[in-house]
Design a protein around this nucleic acid. Structure first.
Lengths: 199, 199, 199, 199
DNA sequence: GATGAATGAGCTTTCATTCAT
DNA sequence: AATGAATGAAAGCTCATTCAT
């Protein structure tokens, strides 16, 4: 019999919920579904999370900080911006491969069911640890003269929309090739889009 | 007494449903909601659509062909690929402004509630009229030497992810400026990303 | 097959609910209990009443106007105040005998579960048609010189507390005799308590 | 470290429960609520009381004996019955002011949620120490010729219904004046109602 | 075609109570 | 005595869908 601390059990719930939410969506995943998959009673679930919404919010915060942390490490590496782009793309796709539920959750639960997150995750509150790091990446690139100085959100939309779009196409099995197959060309496209004008 | 043909009534339902779905989401919109807004009985709704899911599917087909049609017109215009990119971006944002329900539906209902569309809209089946036109745009650009020859989906993901991402950020009121403010820089970014290597 | 209009069905629900609430209390009576006793589905109950609370409120308004109407008729009869007291006591006990659920509901649901009625039945809002008639009875008695002029609520508390208390004792099967047995002495006690000083 | 005997801990629980029940009602007060307010675990609560219902029953017995004791002292005072009535009214209202939870519990928990007390508090079983003293008061008054000889319960209903009704109106903030304002007139009303015929 | 009452499964959440520690 | 995680039945309510009229 494996004993689990309360904290471990919370994590256990979060992992299972993350999977189910990312596959079936927020509304099509029920608390009984989650509880059953864990082998826990429905009632006991509520000893760990006050509500389904609260669980959803904790999940997005967790994911954003997971991704943010990884981008932070790339930002702190002394390499060119072109290389950083490649690393970020690679990290994103690696995450999508190893933890598809994270990216899927981001795309399909967080981005879509805004009414769930409206109250306490307004704007980018719950994903700030992630957005902030992208902002740092971009500012650094501009500061070093490698990137064109443009509105941040235009660059952010490119980055995240593009990467998200690819993962989505992959999830839908629309892509004829593996995600990794596209890594290089995507990094190149992004860099070309953002780079300072050659002269 | 305005008499409506069966077909007109179907369109009426679709318009109303599109609005409600795009604003409140798929699950938070009920059939009684739709029926009431039309002034029709719940029972009668089912004379026009076999189920809520079927309605959702018809809507995405409708939206895809609406967008596809507009891209087709751009494709058929004898202008440079650079100009086509600008026109497509402009068309997309114009649609987002004038018919926000279409783009919102695309982003928040179709892309998100995949469980609803799994059965009969696998892959790109329900949005093929749109995807096909993007493909034609891309092939033409490559054929004319303006675009780099790369995997189509890498280009497609860029296009749609980027545009979708921007509309999303706009919808969340995260963008400091109007969508139109970004049009030029986005078109430029996309073209830079896809264009054949300058030499 | 007996056909019932929507209004009749509402009344049917109210009757059944009144019985169950008065016997088992508000919280110990469930919507499934009510629905089952009527032979109706739980879902359909909600086509008639928006919530359990709304049902409870409609019931107290109904009861208050039932009692108010009967007191109004007594008030309009040209008899002495002493006789009016006797008639009110008699009417109250008759109601308690013939429709025990009404008085019990008043005592055990309305007076007790204030949180249920807080929102829309503040103060005497939902029982005003009843309280008003008692007020008229009292004012008339004072005006005609038969009753001592004292604070209305002191008289009201006597009247309603006393009668309610007796019905409660009866409901608890504490009284050794029938309610009617006490009618005369109670009427006398009330009249003695309220009458103008003999001199 | 304050050590508490088992008996003291029971009293502690009862005090806290009395407060919560009287304010929030029986059903809206949960065992976790009670335990938390005491700083005790839920599980441990059950070492002191076998169930929520048992606790509720012990509380009403406690309150009845508290009130009974005070009436006993009045009964044993060598004063006129008229004065005893005034003292009982005063004592009741004083209790309502100083220990509102007791009277509120009596009115809103005991009298209302009969389903809870049905099993073991049938009739007056759980409040006999209180009822008995009222009975003694009444019998003494009749014996001394001050009160009219009538059925005890008719007199009891007057006493308790009237006093309870006033406290209820006060709790609902329906009374325009303080409870104490009414003391004299209520005592007078009661005495007039019960006194032997003047001749 | 049109109506809307009716169904019933299912959802989120609560809570008295138990029990391994 | 004490803890609090765990249970599980049940509550109020919703809603896609059906069907008698």
């Amino acid at each position: 019999m494996t004993r689990m601390s309360k904290e471990q059990k919370r994590e256990n719930i979060m992992n299972v919920a993350l999977q189910l939410f990312s596959i079936n969506g927020f509304y099509a995943t029920t608390i009984p579904d989650i509880a059953k998959k864990i082998g826990m009673s429905v009632g006991n679930f509520y000893n760990y999370f006050a509500s389904k919404d609260v669980l959803a919010k904790e999940l997005i915060v967790y994911i954003a900080s997971y991704l943010g942390e990884r981008i932070r490490m790339i930002n702190e590496t002394p390499i060119s911006t072109r290389e950083k782009v490649a690393k970020i793309v690679s990290m994103y796709f690696t995450t999508a491969l190893e933890h598809p539920e994270m990216i899927e959750y981001f795309l399909r639960v967080y981005l879509s069911n805004r009414e769930v997150f409206r109250e306490e995750c307004q704007g980018i509150v719950c994903v700030s640890s992630f957005v902030t790091e992208i902002m740092i990446f971009f500012d650094d690139g501009v500061a070093s003269g490698e990137l064109r100085n443009q509105d941040f959100f235009s660059a952010f939309g490119l980055f995240m929309g593009y990467l998200g779009g690819m993962v989505f196409l992959n999830g839908e099995k629309i892509l004829p090739e593996d995600l990794t197959f596209y890594e290089a060309s995507i990094a190149e496209n992004i860099y070309n889009a953002l780079k300072a004008d050659a002269s």
